Structures are given as C-alpha cells and as structure tokens.
Computed example of a mutant assay.
Amino acid sequence: MSSPGPRSSVSPSGRSWRDRRLDRDGSLGLRLTLAAVAAFLVLVPFALLAVLVVGSWTPLHELDAAVTAALHRFAADHPGWVRVMKAWTHVFSPGPLRVAALAVVVWVWRRGSRRLALWVVTTMAVGGALGALLKLLVGRDRPELLDPVARAAGFSFPSGHALNATLAAGVLLLVFLPFARGRPGGRLLLWTVAVLLVGVTGLSRVALGVHWASDVLGGWLLGGAVVAATAAAFRTWREQAGLPAGRTTVDGVAPELVDPHA
C-alpha cells in the first residue's frame, strides 16, 4: 500500500493570518492590507503632532505664538483683510460644507451610485466625529489676544474648519474627477479649487487669531487621513466587486459615474 503523497495545497482554514493578509485574491487580502497600511502611514504625522501638542512641546508652542503674533499684527493694521477672512471662514464653515456634501449625496444617489453616496456620508461623519472627540480629549485652549479681531468658542485642536474643509474638498474632488477624464485643464481646475478651499480656510482661522497654526495643520492631517482611509476601503470593495478602479487621484473613486448606465 503506497503512502499518500504530499499535499499540493493548503486549505483556507489552515492558512496563517499572515498568509491570508498577503493573499492577492482574498477579499480581505493584500489589497485591503496595503490600504490599511497606507491609511496608517497618513495618520502617523497627525498622531505625532497631537503628542507634541498634548506634551506642550516648547519649540512648537513658540512657533505657534510667533505665527499668531505676526498675523494678528497684520490683521490689526488691515481691516479689509479681516473682512475677507471673516467672510471666507463663514461661507466655508463646517455647516455649509456639510450641506454641500449632502447635496452631492442626493445627486449621486439619484444617479444610482448608492455605495458612493454611502462613502461620502461615511467620510464626512467619521471625520467630523473624530474631530469633535479629539477636541475634548486634547482640551487645548485657543489663542488669547489683547485686542482680538474675531472670537470662537470651544477647544482648539484640531481645527474643525480645517478638518471639514479637507474632508469636503477630498470628497468633492474624488467624486467629480471622472468628469475631467481626458481633460487635463479640467482636472487641474478641480485640484486647484480643492487646494484653495483647504488652504485658505485654514489660513483664515489663524489669520483671525482663533486657532494656532498647529491646530490647522492637525485638521489638515486628520482630514487627509480619513479621506485616504475611506477611499482606500472603497477602492478595495470596487476591486472585489469587479468594478473598474483606475487611479484614484486621476479618475476619482467612481469612474463610471460619468455614464452610470454604460
């Protein structure tokens, strides 16, 4: 009686956790593992900044104070600049940005892209909740100026305006990029609008003296990490479902949105 030969394959239930995480064909394999690692790496700078803020690292505090003092002096001498910054910070505050995101949700839902609508809601909700929770956990006070040009309530780190501007800009950019396919000028315009929304909104908070510069940087980093993480997870689901993925930064998260019936 001949002995059985060596097994040619290993049953899925007998595979190690490491092998399953690196499986290119598994639904929770290599693609999701790489997405999780990428999201983690994006989150690392925010975590390091938060540690420095909580630990009241002297060089960071001195840099924040110097930036705030310089911008406050400029604002005190230029009332027109203050009016522009106040108008911008109100128009692009978290409330209006969430309304804009909701309008996008309704639009993509009516086009039949319900999972894309869920991605937008998830990105905005998760980012907003994380920002509110971290404000309470860190408990950082806002700048105190002798002659403030604006006031704001609540804790300071991370900046809610900077965070929500990053979330909204990321969502809107990745939803509408498919419509600029084959048009470099259109793609450049979308990226320019997104960068201006994020950059000027953050600048307005420091220019008005209601946030430290590191608060704004923290909002940008956290918002970028959330968008990267949810977009990576959405991309993984699309690949698992056999849908075309493309390059996220060029084709957006749902390339078929241009022609949902194609």
Results as ranks from 00 to 15, higher is better:
64 D>S: 00
204 S>R: 09
211 H>W: 04
145 L>N: 05
1 M>H: 10
126 V>K: 07
17 W>I: 12
33 T>R: 11
116 L>M: 07
200 V>E: 00
60 L>W: 13
77 D>P: 05
213 A>N: 01
167 L>H: 05
248 T>G: 08
199 G>E: 00
5 G>A: 15
76 A>Y: 07
209 G>Q: 03
41 L>S: 08
200 V>I: 02
201 T>D: 12
2 S>Q: 14
148 P>S: 01
9 S>F: 15
257 L>N: 01
52 L>R: 10
140 R>T: 01
118 L>M: 05
9 S>L: 13
120 V>P: 03
37 V>S: 02
189 L>S: 00
145 L>E: 05
46 F>Y: 15
170 G>P: 12
133 L>H: 02
100 A>Q: 06
37 V>C: 04
46 F>T: 04
144 E>M: 14
175 V>W: 01
233 A>W: 12
98 R>N: 11
228 A>D: 09
76 A>P: 05
150 A>D: 13
236 T>D: 14
31 R>M: 14
124 M>R: 08
18 R>G: 11
180 A>G: 01
182 G>K: 13
261 H>G: 09
225 A>H: 01
104 V>K: 02
28 L>N: 11
107 W>P: 11
80 G>M: 03
153 A>Y: 14
238 R>E: 08
78 H>G: 08
204 S>G: 07
183 R>K: 12
155 F>V: 02
57 W>R: 00
11 S>P: 07
152 A>N: 10
218 G>R: 10
59 P>C: 12
242 G>R: 11
20 R>W: 11
29 G>S: 07
149 V>M: 06
40 F>G: 15
160 G>Q: 06
232 A>G: 15
63 L>M: 15
193 V>T: 07
18 R>F: 15
154 G>C: 04
125 A>K: 03
91 V>E: 08
108 V>C: 01
230 T>P: 06
88 W>M: 03
103 A>D: 07
247 R>N: 14
241 A>N: 10
32 L>P: 00
185 G>N: 00
32 L>A: 00
139 G>K: 06
7 R>A: 15
66 A>Y: 12
40 F>L: 15
177 L>I: 00
127 G>R: 13
32 L>S: 01
168 A>D: 04
1 M>D: 10
46 F>R: 04
251 D>Q: 11
18 R>T: 14
216 V>I: 13
251 D>A: 12
141 D>A: 15
11 S>Y: 12
7 R>P: 11
19 D>F: 01
228 A>F: 12
47 A>P: 04
199 G>N: 00
121 V>D: 09
243 L>V: 04
174 L>H: 15
216 V>Q: 14
201 T>Y: 08
65 A>H: 05
188 L>N: 04
164 N>A: 13
154 G>S: 04
141 D>R: 05
88 W>G: 03
36 A>S: 02
30 L>A: 07
120 V>Q: 06
234 F>W: 04
110 R>V: 12
18 R>I: 15
223 G>S: 07
126 V>R: 07
127 G>C: 08
141 D>I: 03
211 H>I: 10
144 E>H: 14
23 D>E: 08
148 P>A: 04
30 L>R: 09
78 H>S: 13
193 V>Y: 06
254 A>F: 11
195 V>M: 06
241 A>R: 08
113 S>R: 13
142 R>L: 10
26 G>Y: 05
255 P>M: 02
201 T>W: 14
37 V>T: 03
148 P>I: 02
76 A>W: 07
118 L>H: 00
62 E>C: 00
12 P>G: 03
214 S>F: 10
